[in-house]
Design a protein around this nucleic acid. Structure first.
Lengths: 168, 168
DNA sequence: TTGGAATGTCAACAAAGCTGACGTATTGTG
DNA sequence: CACAATACGTCAGCTTTGTTGACATTCCAA
């Protein structure tokens, strides 16, 4: 809508045409399906869904995290998260312990069984990611990350940045 | 799980470490939320959801497409798509016409009102995309697309490729 | 011409999001 | 201390969007 109105400065803005943007949008849609396909298959066997995967991922990522913290990372309501956490705790994949400093808080950890599932899920997802990275090469990967980061909401980017340097 | 076992060839495989892959996975998760946030707000006002957006997008993209074709692009069941299409048709955003050659088929088009909503949705989504592209630059965008394409399922990539060159 | 394949519709159910209300335990503050 | 705020859990009820199963219509080929 806007691009057609401005003169192109050399060829440097060709990547910003509506057509290029539309392709990017569709690429994002189709790629995200591939991105979730492998874990989805594993989850379906166990009777879980993507919501369980997300909880498991971020508990693994930040062991001992509180419910509230998880809530703000996932961007869902506590009722919604609670439904998922309850089943994971009942099934013995997640452990919830009362906080020592603040007893209102619950600290979340994966049990051995939970860690096993986490491993299976992230192995599957990483395998595809690795294949894509390898096919595209390091320079493309850097660009990939740059664009994704620029696409995030301001607040979301803070969560992302905060976790970025944890283990490097 | 696998990376630690192989010797790194110079520094060229550093981008394939589990840690790098994990960051890519989280970037994908967080970015996708941003990617859908703007259209979601518009849709919520009108009482629609993401499924309506996807239908509208691809009908706009391929006017006259059949239900079956749309089905294979979207990767959902016909019953699920049908519910969405029915409301869009009832609300006068989409027109369904019986096929002339094969009367079993329905050909789908956007009405003027449907095209207006499509415009609003894709403007919003493109605005964010454009900002991200502009911030990252043309080289990063090329890499972004490369990695996304490599991440798609084989069959999905065919859909993507088929639509790629339609208007260029 | 008739039976099977393809296309699309209706019904009922499940996962996972949401809002709103409320209970309980704990913490912090005036 | 009294009381407000915080953290968490839960119940009820609704919405979106996916699923399977059953069925009507249409086409095509034996």
């Amino acid at each position: 809508m806007a691009e057609g109105l401005q003169p192109q400065v050399g060829q440097s803005l060709l990547f910003l045409t509506d057509e290029q943007l539309r392709k990017g949008i569709e690429a994002m849609f189709f790629a995200y399906r591939g991105f979730t396909a492998d874990p989805d298959r594993i989850l379906a066997q166990k009777g879980y869904g993507r919501a369980h995967h997300r909880a498991i991922h971020f508990i693994h990522r930040s062991p001992g995290t509180t419910v509230n913290n998880l809530l703000s990372i996932l961007g869902v309501t506590k009722q919604s998260l609670n439904r998922v956490l309850r089943t994971l705790i009942e099934d013995g994949l997640v452990e919830s312990t009362v906080g020592t400093r603040d007893k209102r808080e619950r600290h979340l950890h994966l049990t051995a069984e939970g860690a096993t599932l986490e491993r299976a899920l992230s192995d599957a997802q990483r395998d595809r990611m690795r294949a894509a990275y390898r096919a595209a090469g390091p320079a493309a990967v850097a660009g990939f990350r740059q664009v994704l980061e620029a696409m995030m909401d301001e607040e979301t980017r803070h969560h992302y940045e905060a976790m970025k340097d944890k283990t490097e």
